[in-house]
Simulated scan of single mutants.
Amino acid sequence: MDKSKLLYNREEMLRLNIEALQRRGGVTVHDIATIAHAQQSKYYPDIDLQLCIESVEKILTFRDVFHHIQFAAEVDRLAEEKMFKGPIQDILYYDLGLFGLDETLGLDVARLYGAIGQTNFGDIDVNKRGVVAKLNEDGKKDGIVHTLMDDIVGAIAAAASTRVAQVMNENLALENPDYHKLSLFELMQKKSKGK
């Protein structure tokens, strides 16, 4: 009888993701949260790092993110061990700049938080903050491959950053005594009266 396990609960996915990130580059939740914190500090100077940590942990419980992390960790490991055949081995091993599947995977994770998540990912991917920069630099050393992992980590930071912005905006809206949630119908009525 096949004992393969295919489905994991949120706690298991969180644990397995944390382990994979640690194993494939020494990445911690705190490392990723500091990138999200730095990105959002421009807009919310008093932002609490704990909110960023909670956001990263939340994202690490998503099934799609679980699949992305586990896939990226294994592809990088196999490339590092030179287990692929043909041109893809060298493309992955040397992180060819024209290879775009790593960014595609990153964008897919960031897309969980819409266009802003993707924009935040682009910023992190270009500016290489914190542990993303370290993964990228280490991946240039002989025998170390982080071709997919640096983009996945950057995308998790981008998604966490976007979640933090959403939480901060919701909190600000709730603190404002004049805040009133409008239905689409009420919004359309206000707009038509204003003409």
Rank of each mutant, 00 (worst) to 15 (best):
S183L: 09
N17H: 06
N120P: 06
E103G: 06
S41G: 09
D64I: 06
F185E: 15
G106E: 03
D2H: 11
D31K: 05
G106A: 02
N17M: 01
V131T: 10
R77H: 03
A159R: 06
G117Q: 05
E57N: 05
V65N: 06
Y94S: 02
L148H: 09
L16N: 11
I59W: 07
D178W: 13
S183T: 15
E12V: 06
K5C: 14
G122H: 07
F185G: 02
Q166K: 11
L172Q: 14
D31I: 10
D150V: 01
Q22C: 09
Q39K: 00
I116G: 00
A158G: 09
G194W: 12
G106W: 04
T61H: 07
L105Q: 01
T104I: 15
M83G: 14
D102W: 05
G114L: 04
K128A: 04
E81Q: 13
I152G: 01
G130D: 00
D150K: 05
V167H: 12
A173N: 15
L107M: 10
G139D: 08
D2P: 10
Q22N: 15
I88E: 04
R15Y: 11
G130Y: 02
A79V: 09
K195G: 11
Q118T: 10
A115L: 11
L78Q: 11
V75P: 01
M188I: 15
E175R: 14
L187G: 13
A38H: 11
S192G: 12
L16R: 11
G122R: 04
D64S: 13
E186D: 12
P45M: 08
T147P: 00
A133K: 10
K181W: 09
A165C: 09
I152P: 00
D142T: 14
H37D: 02
G100E: 06
R23M: 02
L187Q: 15
G122A: 09
H180C: 12
V153N: 05
H67R: 11
M13L: 08
D46K: 08
G25L: 00
D90E: 14
D150N: 06
A158L: 07
G139S: 03
N9E: 07
V65R: 01
L135S: 03
S161H: 00
D123F: 15
I144D: 06
D48Y: 07
E170G: 00
F66H: 11
K42L: 15
E12R: 04
L101V: 08
A158T: 00
R10G: 03
E81K: 15
